[in-house]
Structure formats: C-alpha cells, structure tokens
Design a protein around this nucleic acid. Sequence first.
DNA 1: ATATTTTACTTGTAAATACAAGTTGTTAAT
DNA 2: ATTAACAACTTGTATTTACAAGTAAAATAT
Lengths: 238, 238
Amino acid sequence: MKGDISMPQYRRLYEVLRKHIVEGVYQEGDLLPSENELCVTYGLTRPTVRHALDELVKDGFIKKQKGKGSIVHPLPRGIGILSVAGTTSALGNRDLKTRILVKPEIRSWDEAFFFPLPEHIRESGCIYMERLRLIDGKPLFYDLTYLPNINLPRFTSRTFENRSLFDTLRSNYQIEITGGEQRLWAIKADEQIAAFLQILPGEPVLHLERKIDTNRVGFSFFSSLYCDTSEQALFGVF
Amino acid sequence: MKGDISMPQYRRLYEVLRKHIVEGVYQEGDLLPSENELCVTYGLTRPTVRHALDELVKDGFIKKQKGKGSIVHPLPRGIGILSVAGTTSALGNRDLKTRILVKPEIRSWDEAFFFPLPEHIRESGCIYMERLRLIDGKPLFYDLTYLPNINLPRFTSRTFENRSLFDTLRSNYQIEITGGEQRLWAIKADEQIAAFLQILPGEPVLHLERKIDTNRVGFSFFSSLYCDTSEQALFGVF
DNA sequence: ATATTTTACTTGTAAATACAAGTTGTTAAT
DNA sequence: ATTAACAACTTGTATTTACAAGTAAAATAT
C-alpha cells in the first residue's frame, strides 16, 4: 500500500521519514540527515527531497532551521485531527476503536446542509453513517458522516467496525484525502451527544463541521463531529 | 512594508495575488492566470510562481486542479485564527478593535507554564499582557499573551490599543511569524472569562493554547486564548 | 588562554528545462 | 447529429545548476 509504484518519489520519501519519526528511529530534537545526504541515500535530487521535507513540516513532524538542519518535532500530546496527517497517525500507540451507531444508508441531503452543495451532488442523494470513536476505551468522537452517493459501489454493505473510513476509501475506491476545510465551535452537549460521549448534558463539547476534499475531482464528503475535550485536547500546527 | 526589497520574490507574488483575491479582483470560483502567464507577467520562473501559489493553497485562498488551473476559494465565513494567515486578514471588511486589559508588564514565568520552556528563556522573565478583541463591537477573544523578555527594547512602554501585536513585532523588531502549534478544548466559562466576553458563566467557550514561532531563531511566544464561538465559528483549512 | 577569522557545512531562493497527466475545446469521422 | 480522435492548453513531478545566507567548528592571530 505504502510502497505503491504509482506513488510520487517525494511522497515515498515522506512516508519513510515519517515512519522513522513515529517509530523513534529519529527522536525528538534529533537532526534528520541533511538534504544532500538524503539525496545520496535515496537517489533523488534536492528539490524532490525538499518537497518531502516540506510535507513533513506542514504536518508538524519536523521544523527546519537555516544553516542547521531539519529538527524532529516533539510528538503532539493531543489528537491531531486538525490536520490531514491527523486522526489515526498522531495517536501513536494508543488504542483507537470505532463503533458503528448507524450503518451506511442512502438518504436525501438535508435541505439546510451545513456546506453548500452542487446540484448534481444533491440530486444523487447521500450516504449517511454515524460512528463513535473510542480511545483507550473512552468515547471521544461522535461523528456524523455524509458522502455523495456517486460511484461508490457496494459501499453501504461494507463494514467499518474498527476500520478507518479513510483507509476504506483508499483501498477500495482509490480515493485519497487531499485537504479540506473546517469550522469549529464550543457548544453544550445535548442529551443525545452526552449519552454517546458518556458525559453530562450541558457539558462543553467541541463541534467541528468539516468538508473533506479528495483526489477525485468534485468528490468531497462531509463530517459533523462532536468531541469530548475534557481529557484530550485537539492538536494542530499552523 | 509589503514591497520590501529584501522580500523573496515568491513572497512578493504571494502578497500581490492575495491582495487581489481579498479585494475582489479575482472572485470566488474564478481561475487565476495560469502559471505560465504569471511567469511572463511578473518575470519569474515556474518554480518561483508555484512556490507562491503553494502558499496561497496552504492559507486557503485558492485550490489547484490539475489540467484546469488555480481556483479562487470562497472567503471563509468565520474567523481564520487557526492558520497563520488568519486573524486580521480573514476578517475582511469587519471592524476589529483591541482593548488592553493589562498593559505589558515584566513578571516571572508561571512555573507550570503550558508549554515547556528552555532554561535561558525562563531565567530572563516574561512580558505579560491581556487583551480583549472585539469584532463589530462584540467581544470575541480574551487573550493572555506571554513573550520572552529578550531583546525587545521599550516593549512595555508601547501602546497596543487597536494595533495588531504581529504588526508591532514586524515593524519595530523585524520579527515575522513563521508558524506555530496549538491545542484546543471546549470549556465552561468561569466568572472572569464570562465577564470579559459578556456571556453567562458556565457557557461553553473555546480555549486555545498556542506557541507561536518566529523568524528569530529560538524566539517563540505564547498565547492562551478564550473565544466566544456562539456567533462566530473559527475557521481553518487543512 | 582568548578572541577573531576562516572554512565547511547547512537550508533558502531562483533559474532553465523536460516530460507526465488531467482538462477542454476543436476537428474529423461515422 | 453524434461520437471519437486530436491538439492545445493546464498543473504535477523531477532533474540540474547556481548562488545567498545562516550555523558551527576548526584554524589562526592576538
């Protein structure tokens, strides 16, 4: 999967270095090999190597300093859902489980949907599912997902129990997440949210509305997410 | 300031295009001139132009599509404090005021400070200030700022009333913000926070803790920020 | 011994070039 | 009229080369 032949070289180097960082081959504060060393080691040119390093900076794994080198960043104490890299990666060794509350089903889009929709997306309907994500046994995310019902054969019959949606999209439909946008608020948990997150109604929770873009042009999907931040902060770089 | 001779060329092009976008020269959904056209217009080569466009993508102003072009992104309906570009820029025509609650003063760092500090930073003390930021007259941010007391002459005697801290650092100390990291939670407003934000105690507010990095090596500063999201969402791209 | 200069290394910026791959409108064939 | 092939665009990836600017350690002069 990761060593895909079709993957660009800068992407492959990114994956290798990232793996080394999260596995501790390079530790916090260490310098990565210099760009020229990486060129020799991996048989690439400097722009290509720099492209890979830029991605690592963007995702918060390293920080660069002119004249010195690429410094490995401390792994975040929090959940990196604010960046693409996030969700499953920044959790490291922690134990992430997914429980399906509402299995994927086809319905029509809410007419007051939280992001504007093109007409052809609206017409073809929506694949809806609800999931609860637990970390170390504690429910942290209550996630409502909305996907355009376009060219996703057999999707509603798939199982997502303890599987990443992103992985399913990548393995089965060759859909990669390329970016997105998000809005967020602090709100009071209502009865339902509180029940799922095992907190008291009225407790503050984080509400995220996200539009998630993919490599398939015109194919974006959406997520409305409630997060209990009483024990785990959300983390991001900018 | 913006046309600084020392500014890299890709950065200058970034500023120009960004200005054109926020001023409406290019409207939402429009295509920017193609990379080759920009090369000719501004006398640059494609890698340089692409560097500028990459920055615009990173800050959420455009989105690129292979084979088509660079598409101007809708300006966010929210406050873009989650990215560097953010704070003052994404507000567009809205009216941002800053009220100083505690004027910059030198004190020692809290021993349980929310980010780890190097010893030499800790020793030299901390410049502390409290600000309230109002948008269209409504208080939205209550911001505690902590700067290392290192090489910032006359800082405590400056006025920040209705002035951006970032601008002050740039104009007077040649300090540019290069990035940073942040953690965020939803919490209940306590008495003090509620009073400043003009909401009820116990209402949910967003709490951000940010480390903000600069072009001056080893010089980072910090912000603990409480945000009333009842009327304005925070916005970000990823 | 200490301070200064030099040197070798690092990342940052920039140019010129080439081809791959996706999009779109035009042209040609059916 | 409809379809298919083509041509002319677009951005994406990658190489090669060069110099600027910051860092750090070694060499040198005081």
